[in-house]
Design a protein around this nucleic acid. Structure first.
Lengths: 339, 339
DNA sequence: ATGAAAGCGCTAACAA
DNA sequence: TTGTTAGCGCTTTCAT
């Protein structure tokens, strides 16, 4: 392996001088610099990050912990994050928790072991709180993304689940819907709570009745395997006027699963029932915009998250806590209709 | 920072003993091990990877260089790769080249600097060859994924672009199409070449004429911004019997762009014109399977790629070269019709 | 079964 | 402007 010592020997200088050239630190005579750069090029030297980290206590690496990078929403976040990291001179260590807190713990361990300079984290649930403490004990800054945690103190960058839900429900109400069901994610995730709150408050403000059996929860695993059918069936079995005319699916995957279930049950969207959801359904939208959605700026979330994180890492003078809540775009398309 | 020295002091043993416990190496008396493990837990010690790498010359990290993780095809590869890496005890450093060879060079540098144990690479073009040489000069094994490179010697895991194309074109011919256009990716990428070869040979075998103006190329940037409209327009302007009745779009993004262009030009798919493509168009397929596609096993590609890579990294006894070509699934759906 | 010494490649701190 | 020394946290090697 080529080291600074090899370069030093070849260029007839000390290793320290080589180090200075590489890092553009200190004053170097131009001729010396040229000599060193020539040697570096000739020997194809590339600095050893591990050695650097050991002395500098910096890895120039950020941890990115998402639930599933194969979900377009998260892959866009990842892309935005990676782009921002590159700009700022950082690398990204990627991981997928599958909403599994065991996996999450292991990845946190990995991040600590890797001594990443900071972690961008979409927590699996409020229980992640203790893992954040662990990171902080190791002096690793954390920025939350997409989801917050109750009583979390620190930076986060999320979409406005509450506001988006309000607007989606208001849209349905304007379209004449009075019986609106909610199929939500697990309530120990902040986005699910906020979406339910938006749903409930909008109904209340519009003097619409709230039926408990209109609200159901489904977890990640069950959405994955498309298990919304039972829920949908139960909703449709409600008698007469209580049968919902619209469904608010808490995210894109739930919506897709719901529409498939409806189809299997012989119902057409939007003719027989309207559907709205959070998150864009890509890439369909580019050729056949179908879903009425609250589209979150996923790539922005990642980008801003990394920017905030790096500011923390580099001890920039910023406020104690920065809470960014980006409004979603409400896009009225073909999955809803007036009744 | 907690080090093995802190643990050693606390447990009244030497640092070396701590190291042995952590790595399960050498013989340790059970009581000693317990003592050490207790100290580790109490102090919340996590090994420093940088220090480890420095002595062991291993980072337990793999580089993953894709073109764009926001593309569902690649995000599935990434997911498969990350899962496999986790299983095998490796971490993944992620990057996106955007098909840009400059960016690719920088990322290769990053991988060398990070001293990753191996790199899984979707090369931007055949010119990537020199970058692979660079990695190998640093003793970093490389496995190619999704695409090969002319005269590349080593492992690769790709989909069968040739076979998939043959079957897609045969399907069109069976449906009565005789005028089939190809909108391909850049010809310096192996998949594009193979798809064109499959296209041409199938036409030839079926005694169908080959028109040069049926074949066009579009690069990544232009697909991104949806610039297939010009191409589509030119195809449609062809007079009478020469006007294509079907389009073979070389990948999912091209297909989406094409369908949008067709729609803007007032044409319906499949009524007015049929469209086939490579790669699944997710997640539409789950509720409304529309595209007739050659679906590649993306997640498998990533998984096998990592398995092969790790075998190289760990010097397992395997053949000199392993060339895995996975057949795509041909899924006949609604974007094609008999004429 | 355990420990001591040396060194991985680099940079911070000090010296010249 | 350049060089010397020491040490980051760990493992390899050799000793006990």
């Amino acid at each position: 392996m080529v080291t600074i010592y090899d370069i030093a020997k070849k260029a007839n200088v000390s290793p320290m001088t080589v180090s200075r050239v590489i890092n553009n630190s200190g004053n170097i005579r131009l001729t010396t610099r040229k000599k060193v750069e020539k040697a570096i090029k000739e020997l194809g030297y590339v600095p050893n990050s591990a050695a650097r980290s050991l002395t500098s206590n910096k890895t120039k690496t950020l941890g990115l912990i998402l639930t599933d990078i194969a979900n377009p929403f998260f892959s866009k976040i990842a892309r935005g994050a990676e782009d921002a990291a590159l700009d700022l001179g950082y690398r990204v260590l990627m991981s997928n928790t599958d909403e599994d807190s065991e996996k999450e713990i292991n990845y946190i361990d990995m991040m600590i072991s890797a001594r990443v300079d900071g972690v961008l984290l979409a927590p699996t649930s409020d229980r992640t709180s203790s893992q954040i403490d662990r990171l902080r004990k190791h002096d690793i800054p954390v920025v939350l993304i997409d989801r917050t945690i109750e009583q979390f103190e620190g930076d986060y960058v999320v979409g406005d689940s509450y506001d988006g839900s309000r607007k989606l429900i208001e849209h349905l109400i304007m379209y004449g819907h009075q019986n609106i069901a909610l199929i939500n994610g697990p309530s120990n995730v902040s986005t699910a709570r906020d979406r339910q709150r938006g749903y409930l408050e909008t109904l209340k403000l519009n003097d619409l009745p709230i039926y408990e059996h209109y609200i159901s929860e489904i977890d990640y695993k069950n959405v994955q395997i498309g298990n919304t059918k039972n829920i949908v069936q139960q909703l449709l079995q409600l008698e007469g006027t209580k049968r919902p005319t619209a469904i608010f699916a808490a995210n894109n995957f739930i919506a897709i699963s719901v529409i498939r279930a409806l189809k299997e049950l012989g119902l057409n969207v939007p003719k027989d029932i309207s559907v709205v959801c959070f998150d864009e359904v890509e890439p369909v939208v580019y050729f056949d915009p179908f879903f009425t959605v609250a589209a979150q700026p996923a790539s922005e979330l990642g980008k801003i998250g990394v920017q905030f994180l790096v500011e923390r890492v580099e001890h920039k003078n910023v406020e104690k806590e920065r809470k960014i809540i980006l409004p979603p775009d409400i896009l009225i398309r073909k999955s809803t209709r007036k009744i």
